[in-house]
Computed example of a mutant assay.
Amino acid sequence: MVAEGVQHILDEDFELLEIVADGEALIDAVQRLQPDIVVADINMPRCNGMDALKRLRQAGVETRFVFLTMHMEPALAVAALRAGARGYILKNSAGEDLRNAAQQVMSGGTYVTPALGARYISGQMTDMRNLTSKQLQVLRLVGSGLRSKQIALQLGLSVRTVEAHKYTMMQVLGVHSTLELVRRAEDLGLLF
């Protein structure tokens, strides 16, 4: 039903080559048909859309991808774009957004549902405002793989202070482990 809706929305400007039911079939169809653009869901059986995209990129396939998904999570949109997607559209705003996204992506641009982009930017600004410069230093060292003792030595802090900074950052960024902290920081562009 979703595929038929997508076809109807894009009918005027695009020719449908194939509809697939899972990620493995998507990989096969893209390699076989070499389409200009793919509209895919992130949640697909056998191989999710993100993994399918990554595998195609590793195989040297540069087909443009637009994800049409129900996930209104800015970090997931960032991960999709970093994996090589050129568009990220929410199913609940698919109509005109999808047509605009497909046209923009085909002309070499990138498109993210505007509401999601605003949510990401406002979230990023809030997250960054709530971190001190010392916390950002600690965060970058955690992101580079250093342990608390090594960070403490490098910054001239106690291990307890480093742990306190990590705990505070986890609270601010809404995560529960060091691994989640690093992933969230990467998604927000706080590590470089």
Rank of each mutant, 00 (worst) to 15 (best):
V61L: 07
K91Q: 03
V61T: 11
E15A: 07
G156T: 01
M70R: 11
R147Q: 14
K134A: 10
G23H: 03
G60M: 01
E96F: 06
Q34N: 13
E15S: 09
A185K: 01
R99W: 06
P35R: 03
L53M: 03
V78I: 11
L173P: 04
L155G: 06
G143C: 04
A102E: 02
T110Y: 11
G109T: 08
L56Y: 05
H8R: 15
M72V: 14
A3W: 05
R82W: 08
R183D: 13
T69H: 00
L179K: 11
I89C: 06
D97F: 03
L153A: 13
D11A: 12
F14D: 00
M125C: 12
Q135F: 04
A21Q: 11
E186H: 08
S122W: 08
A118K: 09
A94I: 00
L56R: 01
A75K: 11
K149I: 10
R140F: 15
M128P: 10
L188Y: 01
L98M: 04
D97V: 02
D187S: 09
E73Y: 12
G108I: 13
R119Q: 14
P35K: 03
H8G: 15
N43L: 14
A40E: 03
I27K: 06
V78S: 03
E24A: 10
M1P: 15
A75F: 09
G87Q: 02
Q7P: 09
L136E: 08
I121R: 12
R55V: 11
E24D: 11
A94T: 02
A52H: 01
E15Y: 05
R86E: 09
L146N: 12
T69L: 06
L26Y: 01
V162E: 00
L76S: 12
V142S: 11
N43Q: 13
A85N: 02
D11L: 09
A102S: 09
N130L: 12
R86D: 08
I37M: 08
M44Q: 01
A85R: 00
T110I: 13
E18C: 04
T132I: 07
T110D: 12
M72W: 10
V38L: 07
A118Y: 12
A152W: 03
